[in-house]
Nucleic acid binder design. Structure first.
Lengths: 155, 155
DNA sequence: ATGACTGCAAAATATTTGCATATTC
DNA sequence: GAATATGCAAATATTTTGCAGTCAT
C-alpha cells in the first residue's frame, strides 16, 4: 500500500478509492498502522494508544475497522504467536520471524518460493495468501547472549 | 514420530523413551492424535471425543498434555486459523493449506526452502521452527464449483 | 511418602453480537 | 434522509491458574 506516510488528505482519498467511507476512526487507525509499520500491533495496543488521542474510541470499532481493512487487503492479519491476532500495514510479499527470547516479530523480506509455482496453484489448490512464520532466536538476542558468555569467561 | 499406528504397549515404550510418564490420559490422547493424523483437531474436538471414552477427562488435562507433547516435539501446534490452536501428530517437515471455502486444513508435503539456508540462519536469525501457512481454495472446492457452473450452463 | 498428574472451578484473555445512537455522503 | 458506522454492554470462546485430591513408584 502507500509507501510514504501520507497526510490525512491523501489517506482520505485512498480510502474513498477503495470504496471505504473515510470516517475519523478509520483515518486515525490507518494513519497509526502506517506510522507503526513493522511493529505488528495487536487490537489491544492499537486501542490503548489511540483512545487516548481520539476518545471515545471503542474496541469494537477497532475490531470492525481492522477486519474491514483486512478484507479490502489494505493490511494483513498475522497469527504467528497463536495467542492473539496482530496486524501489519506492510502488504508487500514478505514473511515473519518470531523471536522466542524477546518476543519481537521481525519482517523477513524474502519472497516465498511457494508463490513461484504455476499460476498460484500448489498441489492443485488455488493459493491466495502465503504466510511464512519462522520461529527461533533473533540476531540481536544471539549477539547479546554471545557477549554475556564472553564477559562471564573473562571474570 | 511413529509412522504406523502402534498398539498401547508400543506407545507406552515410546513415551517412556521420551521421559514422559505414560499415564492413561496421555496414552489415549497420543493414540487419538495418531489415529486422527491429518485432521488437525482442536483441544475442544479432542476433549469432546475422548471424554466420552475415558471419563472423567478434564479439558485442563487435555491442554496440559498437548502442551507437554509440543514441548517434547511429539506433536506440533498449528495456528493457521487464528482463532484457535490445532494440533498435528505429523511432525515430518511439511506445511499447511487452509481452504477458505470448506475450512479444511490440508497437509502440504513440500519441504520449505527456508530450511535450506546456511546452518538454520535466515538473515542472521537462528531458525528453530518453520510454518508455511497457505490460504485459498482447495482442489476439491475448485472442482465442485466448476461442476456447478457447468450444470448451470446446461440448464 | 514423595513427587508428579489430574480435574474442577474460577479467572484471565480475546473476540463477537445485539442494539441504540451518531455520522457520512 | 438513507445507509452505514460507532460504541456500549453483554455474550461467547479460548486458554490459564490455583488448589485439592489422586495416582504411581
Amino acid at each position: 500500500m502507500i509507501k510514504i506516510i501520507s497526510n490525512m488528505g491523501e489517506l482520505k482519498k485512498f480510502l474513498l478509492g477503495k470504496g471505504i467511507k473515510p470516517t475519523y476512526q478509520r483515518l486515525e487507525i490507518l494513519y497509526y498502522m502506517l506510522k507503526k509499520m513493522n511493529s505488528h500491533p495487536t487490537v489491544d495496543t492499537i486501542y490503548e494508544e489511540l483512545y487516548l488521542k481520539i476518545p471515545p474510541l471503542s474496541k469494537t470499532t477497532v475490531y470492525n475497522i481492522l477486519k474491514s481493512f483486512v478484507e479490502k487487503k489494505i493490511i494483513s492479519a498475522i497469527t504467528i504467536t497463536g495467542s492473539e491476532v496482530r496486524y501489519d500495514a506492510n502488504i508487500t510479499p514478505h514473511h515473519h520471524f518470531l523471536c522466542t527470547k524477546c518476543g519481537r516479530i521481525i519482517d523477513l523480506d524474502l519472497k516465498c518460493p511457494f508463490e513461484m509455482q504455476d499460476k498460484n496453484r500448489v498441489l492443485g489448490h488455488r493459493v491466495e495468501e502465503v504466510h511464512g512464520y519462522l520461529k527461533g532466536i533473533c540476531k540481536e538476542c544471539l549477539k547479546r547472549r554471545k557477549n554475556e558468555i564472553f564477559k562471564r569467561n573473562k571474570n
